[in-house]
């Protein structure tokens, strides 16, 4: 039935898809790790980024990879403003209210997209979309390799940011001990907004890298957001290396599970891993203390 020769290419497919999951999850793990909130709006922000990249390409002729330069700061700004002006203020700092507010924000964003762009599925055909690179026995589309490399680079950048900069130290301080951080003079609201902004900027980068191999529609966020949560939990909240490895593991599991036991099982495997990790090692592979 199953030809062992296709196992290796399937694993490589899984790795490259896993890198995409990691890209989406990197921003989420930062927001989740620092603010301890489950951000329901994450998928909608990815959608915003995808539309941004799409229109820059279609109207401005700007290649998605080039549009990174514009999208990353733009989404950072959007994220900062959202957290500082809407989520932080409306939620009064309580977790259940953050949940409702991010949910409300995602409903608004998705339907704004529906209103302005209609429910139409949009795709671009980038000139390199069908460039293939041979790796061992697999032929991998170029955009996926780019995404793979970018996931590594962005994870490394985030790690540097957190480990080596004052901002990173402040974020970590706030993540660990909000009250204490406030006492030593850290502007907690600003740090929250910065974290949300950086997390959203990551989603902007993910969007630019994803567009050449995917599509965009007002509901596209749902396609990735649950997987991204799985990746975050698997890797441990707030851990970038964890998110990266988590993404790759999920990608390969989905791919090989789907190949060997059927596509449905591939989907099932993601959630079974998710449940197993939550039960047996809720802090993930690289997470810190349990909450």
């Amino acid at each position: 039935m199953l030809d062992p020769v296709i196992l290796l290419p399937a694993a490589i497919n899984g790795l490259t898809m896993g890198a995409v999951y990691a890209l989406v999850a990197l921003g989420l793990t930062l927001i989740y790790g620092v603010l301890h909130i489950i951000n329901f709006a994450h998928g909608s922000l990815l959608m915003v980024g995808l539309y941004g990249a799409f229109f820059l390409y279609q109207a401005g002729g700007i290649d998605p990879y080039l549009s990174l330069v514009l999208l990353v700061p733009a989404l950072f700004g959007l994220g900062y403003i959202l957290q500082w002006g809407v989520i932080g203020r409306a939620s009064h700092g309580s977790d259940q209210n953050v949940l409702l507010v991010t949910l409300g924000v995602s409903i608004v964003i998705e339907n704004l997209a529906l209103y302005f762009f209609t429910g139409d599925t949009r795709t671009i055909e980038a000139p390199y979309a069908f460039e293939m690179v041979d790796i061992a026995v697999a032929r991998v589309p170029l955009p996926r390799l780019v995404a793979f490399g970018a996931a590594l680079a962005i994870a490394a950048l985030l790690w540097l940011l957190m480990a080596k900069t004052d901002l990173g130290r402040a974020i970590r301080a706030v993540a660990k001990e909000r009250q204490g951080a406030r006492l030593v003079g850290i502007d907690v609201d600003h740090i929250f907004a910065m974290s949300f902004g950086i997390g959203t900027a990551c989603v902007g980068a993910a969007a630019a890298l994803l567009l050449p191999m995917f599509y965009v529609s007002p509901h596209v966020g749902h396609v990735f957001v649950l997987v991204a949560f799985t990746v975050v939990v698997l890797g441990g909240m707030g851990s970038f290396i964890g998110a990266l490895l988590g993404g790759l593991i999920i990608g390969v599991t989905e791919s090989l599970g789907g190949l060997i036991f059927g596509e449905t099982f591939g989907q099932l495997a993601i959630f079974l891993i998710f449940i197993a990790i939550l039960l047996f090692r809720p802090t993930g592979f690289f997470g810190g203390r349990p909450s």
Partner: peptide, 20 residues
């Protein structure tokens, strides 16, 4: 299409803001 749900989403956020 969409306008009603935009309004609904805004209403949700406002409700949380006013009634924590």
């Amino acid at each position: 299409p969409g306008l009603n749900l935009i309004f609904y989403g805004v209403l949700l956020v406002v409700m949380v803001r006013l009634m924590p």
